[in-house]
């Protein structure tokens, strides 16, 4: 009973904390910096979610932009349809907006998760680079389907019915609340029994199977969860951007996600967080370099892969204890 109370208290404190920091950020920072902070949060969601399948499970997806697109389109469309109904029910205001937004995000997550399931069931029988190339194919097909769907604006993109675009629901509070939720969910999966099984699949799938691990089911589940988190990130992106186009979810977007988890370290949650933030900040700082920017970006990817293919942290997690003991703890 008390444990339950403590949990409620901690959760309330965290939510209040995010709200407080959000208010502080919005009061003190210029919008330009705020935007980068939001992008960093969305990147963290993408990276942590992708890390579950690419890092922990070792099944490489290079088409996650497709799931992000499904989440973004679903959330945007649901939000536009729900908003009038909910504001009629609960009155226009912050409450009905918050409910609309989160229902839209959840709808995006569910659709992306289902798509992940549908893509995952046939594809995850394949291994390694074959799997990678199939996810790439699916990612491109998803984008091409949006490109040819007139009801969602086809190549022009989807902006809702208002000429000023989708409502800008995405705020510091919502982005980072979702960051906390998703990081906790992924952390709990990674360090659970299931998580160990996933790691076992990464290390040696045949051995894992021999140990009676239901490899296919676990892989598909992890893939679907990872797709759902990309869907949440897509919904947040859509409502930050006030409109989405199929072009926003090109193959390059999937590469960006991979770069994030590679910088931090494949199989490390804290690594993914660092990678997500790093990418948001660096790409923005390098804007002045114009055409050199993408050259440096690609060079960075190649050099990291050659010099330190396991990323900054490898599969280790960054923790306070690591600094206190001056020694990396072994993986739990």
């Amino acid at each position: 009973m008390t444990r339950w109370l403590v949990r409620v208290a901690v959760s309330t404190a965290v939510v209040a904390g995010i709200y407080g920091i959000g208010a502080g950020v919005e009061a003190t920072m210029i919008e330009y910096v705020q935007r980068i902070v939001l992008i960093a949060g969305i990147n963290v969601i993408l990276a942590v979610g992708l890390g579950l399948i690419n890092g922990t499970t070792g099944q490489f997806s290079i088409g996650h932009a497709g799931f992000m697109a499904i989440g973004a389109y679903t959330a945007a469309f649901t939000g536009v349809q729900l908003a009038p109904a909910l504001s009629g029910l609960a009155g226009a205001g912050a409450l009905s907006e918050a409910v609309t937004f989160n229902l839209a995000l959840l709808a995006g997550a569910v659709m992306a998760g289902v798509a992940g399931l549908l893509v995952g069931i046939p594809s995850l029988r394949l291994k390694g680079d074959y799997l990678a190339i199939v996810t790439l194919g699916f990612g491109e097909i998803i984008r091409l389907l949006f490109n040819n769907t007139q009801a969602l604006g086809a190549a022009t993109g989807y902006f809702g019915n208002d000429p000023s675009g989708l409502p800008p629901y995405t705020s510091f509070f919502w982005v980072y609340l979702w960051v906390v939720v998703i990081v906790l969910v992924i952390r709990n999966i990674t360090f659970s029994q299931t998580g160990r099984s996933l790691t076992a699949i990464r290390e040696d799938e045949i051995a894992a199977e021999a140990m009676a691990t239901p490899t296919t089911r676990l892989k598909v589940t992890a893939f679907s969860i990872s797709a759902a988190t990309a869907g949440i990130a897509g919904g947040l992106f859509a409502h930050m951007q006030s409109g989405i186009r199929p072009e926003d979810f090109k193959f390059e977007k999937s590469i960006d996600m991979i770069v994030m988890i590679i910088i931090g370290g494949l199989g490390s949650i804290t690594g993914a967080i660092i990678g997500g933030i790093f990418l948001a900040v660096t790409l923005e700082l390098m804007r002045d370099l114009q055409e050199w920017r993408l050259i440096l970006y690609a060079l960075l990817l190649v050099v990291i892969m050659i010099v330190r293919p396991q990323g900054l942290l490898g599969t280790r997690e960054l923790s306070l204890a690591m600094f206190a003991r001056k020694k990396a703890p072994s993986k739990p």
Binding site: Y32, V33, I39, Q241, E247, E284, Q290, R293
Partner: peptide, 21 residues
């Protein structure tokens, strides 16, 4: 002049920076 790389998210970033910074 700020580059958008032909990308809509980057266009929004660039405009925000042109205004704020």
């Amino acid at each position: 002049t700020l580059d958008t790389r032909g990308d809509s998210a980057e266009a929004a970033n660039a405009v925000t920076r042109l205004i704020d910074v």
